[in-house]
């Protein structure tokens, strides 16, 4: 019995056609790459990562008398390094831009832009995107810059302010610690600290913007100080310090006295004794946990096995850590 020959497209060609059609219909406008003249591109003035040196200084050199000379030298060297690599192999990752009036504004890639200019390039590869929604633009810039070691706290704060403003104006709900944590994928404590900084008063913000404080934990501790007298003292001391302040230890030393602190010296701790009755332990646990300041930790202690001494001990250890965390922010200096 003979069978009639049937024809069809080769399987690999068929799957190629199917995949191509699918990719085109779902990704329109996602990959617009081009070569663009540097003249047509402009940096975003609100990009959180501000270069410490100006275009003029890049071209004409730095003044050794400049108070920020060291910082600028570092920045210039880093840009020169990038510029050298661009001379050799060009820009490997396109600069992302969007059309803004007659020019194209940078979303990400500002250092590549300046380095290309230093390298004497006339045009650079760009990826052209539609103008991003304000919130997404600020978020992208955060993601792009946050892992850079040289991003200052002031730059991070400015980016955060833009993110929070864009969040509020885009009807995304309340801009809370929780929202910040979910958005940026950071730990609870980091979110808490950033949030404290966002709500800091002008004095703290000024110290951050002056570069006197570049440490998030320190900034948050300063925000949390309740003793206004002590706080003002610390602020004036930081303001008058020549360099960036990284901890309050030297303030305590310079004040000539050990500041009133409930923190014990390193390596020391207090033993809280032993309890033999699990029910008593449970009751004590509940009393402590009922403190309003521990509200946000309560969900962590929902499933304790009260029949296991090991589990109870572990829960107490964890509770003490939370208590220290919750109460330490009120710690007076």
């Amino acid at each position: 019995m003979s069978t009639k020959k049937r024809f069809s497209i080769a399987p690999d060609l068929a799957s190629g056609i199917r995949n191509t059609i699918q990719s085109a219909s779902t990704n329109q406008g996602q990959l617009h790459y081009d070569m663009m003249s540097l003249d047509a591109i402009q940096p975003d003035p609100e990009n959180p990562r501000k270069l410490s040196i100006s275009h003029n200084e890049m071209v004409h050199g730095l003044l050794p008398t400049d108070p920020d000379y060291q910082k600028k030298i570092k920045e210039r060297d880093a840009l020169n390094e990038l510029s050298e690599s661009i001379k050799r192999i060009g820009i490997r990752n396109a600069i992302e831009v969007y059309k803004d009036g007659l020019k194209y504004r940078i979303v990400t890639g500002e250092r590549r832009y300046w380095a290309a200019m230093l390298a004497g390039q006339k045009s650079v590869p760009v990826r052209i995107s539609p103008k991003p929604e304000e919130f997404n633009l600020r978020y992208t810039q955060w993601v792009e810059n946050i892992n850079r070691q040289d991003l200052s706290l002031a730059e991070k704060l400015n980016n955060l302010i833009l993110i929070s403003e864009a969040h509020k104006s885009s009807n995304r709900g309340e801009f809370s610690e929780q929202a910040l944590q979910n958005l940026l994928g950071i730990s609870t404590i980091q979110a808490y600290r950033y949030f404290a900084l966002l709500n800091a008063d002008d004095k703290v913000i000024q110290l951050v913007n002056l570069g006197k404080i570049n440490n998030l934990k320190l900034a948050q501790e300063l925000c949390a100080m309740k003793d206004q007298g002590a706080r003002n003292q610390v602020i004036s001391w930081i303001r008058s310090s020549k360099d960036e302040v990284t901890s309050l230890v030297s303030f305590k030393e310079s004040a000539g006295k050990k500041a009133a602190s409930s923190t014990l010296s390193a390596g020391r701790s207090i033993s809280l004794g032993k309890i033999n009755n699990a029910q008593v332990a449970k009751k004590l646990f509940e009393i402590v946990l009922s403190d309003i300041k521990l509200d946000k930790y309560r969900h962590e202690f929902k499933n304790i096995d009260w029949s296991s001494s090991k589990a109870i001990t572990k829960a107490f250890k964890s509770l003490f850590k939370s208590i220290e965390l919750a109460l330490s922010v009120e710690d007076p200096v």
């Binding site: 191509t20 059609i21 990719s23 406008g29 996602q30 617009h32 081009d34 052209i128």
Partner: peptide, 8 residues
């Protein structure tokens, strides 16, 4: 497809 991906 290439043209589609690059067009707004």
């Amino acid at each position: 497809k290439s043209e589609t991906l690059r067009r707004p």
